[in-house]
Design a protein around this nucleic acid. Structure first.
Lengths: 130, 130
DNA sequence: ATAACAAACGTTATATTATAACACTATGTT
DNA sequence: AACATAGTGTTATAATATAACGTTTGTTAT
């Protein structure tokens, strides 16, 4: 049933790079890495990134302006993202905690806002850096 | 007991502008607004912003690269921030929900990370825009 | 098949956000 | 006074992101 999304050439190239990477990649570092594949301009990268985000294949780590592959294979539409970020070594890990996501996805306040999405970033020190 | 932090000239100018604003301000819009006060260069703004963030006087809304005044007078060091953002009119409100902050501040996982800070951004539609 | 439309592409230029580097000034210890 | 620390002013530049335009490719409906 889960129709596998077919990606365009540029989208696939960009996704491959991000999936192979062990850390979040910045847009221009992606650009540098894919120039041998024929992608020449920032816009080509940004367009692919935008689409991949929409598809939930990757996420943007807002505080770092960097992009990571989504590890949840079922995360086709990313409306609930959480990351843990080490402020020393900059290691970023996607947090997949169903308790948090349940808790936050049901969040309501008295302002009349309707929430469809959230992004949560934790900062601290990882085991190694502590 | 609460020693009121004395701000430098530029810091006070930048804080005033942000506090008066009804919406998050971008760094270069701040710059434009304070040029009559003698602040001429981006760095002067960014330096003030950096310090004000450290003091917890303002927060950065990461997904918008914009800055808002902290409404919690006791929020001298901002280690737990949450915002609600309307994707249509871009209205941003700081969420001051002690349940969430208690819940997230006590978050632990099995990776050995030590958390000292988090930032949470909710996206959706406000009452007017729905 | 082909018309019509949407999505993706390629390219140039430019806007926006942020920091490096350096010399100088003010302020607060001791 | 000597020293440390924080803040300032300035020029230059790096890093991140989008606008605008025209072309190409892929999908869908007849």
């Amino acid at each position: 049933m889960t129709q596998t999304q077919i990606l365009s050439k540029n989208q696939q190239i960009v996704l491959d790079i991000i999936e192979k990477a062990k850390e979040p990649l910045k847009a221009y570092s992606i650009l540098f890495n894919v120039q041998k594949k024929g992608i020449k301009a920032p816009l080509q990268v940004y367009r692919a990134l935008e689409k991949l985000i929409k598809l939930g294949k990757i996420h943007k780590v807002e505080s770092r302006n960097a992009f990571v592959a989504c590890k949840n294979s079922y995360c086709r539409i990313s409306k609930a993202t959480a990351f843990s970020i080490c402020e020393s070594c900059e290691k970023v890990t996607e947090i997949n905690n169903s308790k948090i996501s349940k808790y936050l996805s049901n969040f309501e306040d008295n302002t009349g806002m309707t929430y469809k999405k959230y992004n949560l970033e934790f900062f601290g020190l990882c085991k190694k850096c502590r």
